[in-house]
């Protein structure tokens, strides 16, 4: 009875999600297996060419570059974010919600504006340059904007709040007595962190890493704005297939590849988490 009522309540939203998310995504999946038409259209014949093209050496360098930038950004974001989450979780319980709120606040505000702020800072005539010059430095500064570093900074800056949130959740759930138990049994502060706190909060770190990695590798805004279009991420490649090159099947194959990376990493993470928490029965 209840389940029927709940079905009626869910139907409009589920219909919406089916029509405007599930079907379009399946369409993209299908599109990846069609041939590109001579004048940019789609020819409805089955092919594996697009999938093959994803793994073409031509694009290998873009993938490697994307993956290294995304991986570096995710790594930095995870280290900084974990430290911040740890510090928030160590603060008095009363102050934690407000600290967390302000740590996460930028995440919910305009992505473009946050990225633009770094253009203002890193610009050749930007704030950092003017501060350095006003301190009396006369020489030429190394280029800051339109570099890989700028893109990494931008990605870390934009996704850091997410990592803080992901790491804070398991840290705040930790029973403080567990760390105390480790101290009581003779573990030093560092040993306790390495052997107890860190393994118990690893799922949050993994979640943070996976999301920053996937969102970065699929990003086209930050490379365009802070990288000055000098190098491409997979996101830029997708963008180009749809808006300039007009090769939709290849663009679709690329975005399926993105989803595959995300699903693969998330599955790996779930598997590792389950192993760590002992959800599987190991003996009888």
């Amino acid at each position: 009875m209840t389940d029927r009522k709940s079905f009626y309540l869910m139907t409009p939203a589920l219909a919406w999600l089916t029509g405007l998310m599930v079907i379009p995504c399946l369409l993209i999946l299908a599109l990846a297996f069609f041939r590109r038409g001579t004048y940019g259209g789609i020819e409805y014949t089955f092919t594996l060419e697009n999938i093959g093209l994803v793994f073409d050496p031509l694009y290998a360098s873009i993938f490697l570059k994307s993956a290294s930038i995304a991986g570096l950004s995710a790594l930095i974001a995870v280290i900084v974010g974990y430290a911040a989450a740890y510090a928030i979780a160590a603060a008095p319980a009363k102050r934690q919600p407000i600290l967390l709120f302000f740590a996460v606040l930028p995440f919910w505000s305009n992505y473009l504006v946050r990225t633009y702020a770094w253009i203002v800072l890193l610009n050749r005539e930007g704030l950092i340059a003017s501060i350095v010059h006003s301190l009396g430095y006369e020489g030429e500064l190394p280029r800051m904007l339109y570099t890989e570093s700028a893109v990494v900074i931008g990605l870390v800056y934009n996704y850091l709040p997410f990592v803080i949130l992901a790491c804070y959740a398991p840290l705040s759930r930790l029973n403080p007595e567990i760390a105390e138990a480790s101290r009581d049994l003779g573990g030093s502060g560092w040993t306790t962190f390495r052997r107890v706190t860190l393994p118990m909060t690893a799922p949050g770190i993994a979640t943070g890493f996976v999301f920053v990695f996937v969102l970065s590798i699929g990003n086209f805004v930050t490379p365009a704005l802070l990288g000055g279009g000098q190098f491409q991420m997979i996101g830029n490649l997708v963008y180009a297939q749809f808006l300039t090159a007009n090769d939709w099947p290849f663009g679709a194959a690329l975005s399926m590849f993105l989803i595959a990376i995300m699903m693969g990493l998330l599955t790996l993470q779930t598997f590792a988490t389950e192993r760590a928490s002992g959800a599987r029965q190991e003996d009888t």
Partner: peptide, 29 residues
């Protein structure tokens, strides 16, 4: 400091390490 005392505590919540087996928990100290 607690880790340098020949004193051990059995916690009210037990405070077992959830990511370790019973044997690993016992071996830790």
């Amino acid at each position: 400091l607690p880790n340098h005392r020949p004193v051990n505590l059995m916690f009210q919540s037990y405070a077992l390490f959830p990511h370790m087996t019973a044997a690993q928990n016992i071996a830790y100290g």
